[in-house]
């Protein structure tokens, strides 16, 4: 096994402790070794991805163009205007991050350009939070790029030991993974130790265990877009609790293990097949009938 390889939280933590490095640094070192490329080049690659994330936020908050399925498209601009009005009672950061997460998912649903993170279905959580956080706290791009490497480490561990695919593990694998990744990144940005990052990821993931993937008409629109927005809140609360010194009783690796077994136990009707849950609700079925009767719907 190579020097910087890790596939569990425990291995990642040992690497960070032994070398006195942050999770983001461990992830970058691992990547350098894996693809045999300079760190500088890999930072640029991540910078390009972050650029796309920022663009998808910027486009999404101003557009009201309907999604391909016509179910969403106006929510991010509504939420952004609400944030601008100053009426949000939760926090400036949260309301803005929610608007941004909706923006990215709406861009995705109208065939705009996005960066999957870790999937297209969950593409709103991490960019929504990181872009809003950067703006609200005036954080440098370089710090956000590092944070993205931090999120990749969390994602790698989840994808290796469980799944990041809705078809395999339900929404817990998509928005669950994304909120765990975002929670860890925020904690690192706020100066938390590697152990605290894993702690925040564990708390965020625990909250979303068992969440099913039941998209209306199989589209990545309802309930996906708003679940991304909820993922933002989930990540933020997990990060706040962690920064307050609260720990997760169940360690991150064991939460991932639980998520894996729950994902396997979920029936296939609740794993992206649109044959259960909200996808077969009365309203969803009515929508299905309507789109099927459209003459030009091939």
């Amino acid at each position: 096994m190579s020097r910087f390889q890790f596939t569990t939280g425990e291995q990642l933590l040992k690497l960070c402790t032994d070398r006195q490095i942050k999770i983001s640094q461990a992830a970058l070192l691992r990547e350098c070794e894996l693809v045999n490329t300079d760190a500088a080049e890999l930072v640029v690659l991540m910078q390009n991805i972050y650029q796309v994330m920022k663009e998808s936020v910027a486009k999404g908050i101003v557009s009201t163009e309907p999604s391909t399925g016509g179910l969403i498209g106006k929510n991010s601009s509504k939420m952004y205007q609400y944030w601008q009005s100053g009426q949000a009672i939760s926090s400036d950061l949260l309301a803005k991050a929610v608007a941004y997460a909706l923006a990215v998912t709406e861009e995705n649903a109208r065939m705009g350009r996005i960066a999957a993170c870790p999937t297209a279905g969950a593409c709103g959580v991490v960019p929504g939070l990181l872009v809003a956080l950067q703006e609200q706290l005036a954080i440098a791009d370089s710090t956000i790029i590092e944070a993205l490497y931090n999120t990749s480490a969390i994602g790698i561990i989840i994808a290796t030991n469980a799944s990041i695919s809705g078809a395999e593990g339900g929404c817990q694998a998509e928005v669950g993974s994304a909120s765990a990744m975002a929670a860890a990144a925020i904690v690192e940005i706020l100066g938390g130790r590697p152990q605290m990052c894993l702690n925040a990821a564990a708390i965020a993931l625990k909250n979303i265990l068992g969440l099913v993937c039941d998209p209306v008409a199989g589209l990545v629109e309802v309930p996906c877009s708003k679940r991304n927005a909820m993922g933002v809140a989930n990540a933020l609360v997990a990060a706040e609790m962690t920064m307050a010194g609260i720990e997760s009783f169940i360690p991150f690796d064991e939460v991932v293990e639980a998520m894996n077994s729950i994902g396997k136990a979920l029936p296939s009707t609740l794993k992206e097949t649109a044959r259960g849950g909200l996808a077969v609700s009365k309203t969803a079925m009515k929508y299905n009938d309507r789109i099927k009767s459209k003459p030009n719907n091939k």
Partner: peptide
């Protein structure tokens, strides 16, 4: 995990 950059 992060990426690909793609059209949704």
């Amino acid at each position: 995990i992060i990426g690909p950059i793609m059209i949704g």
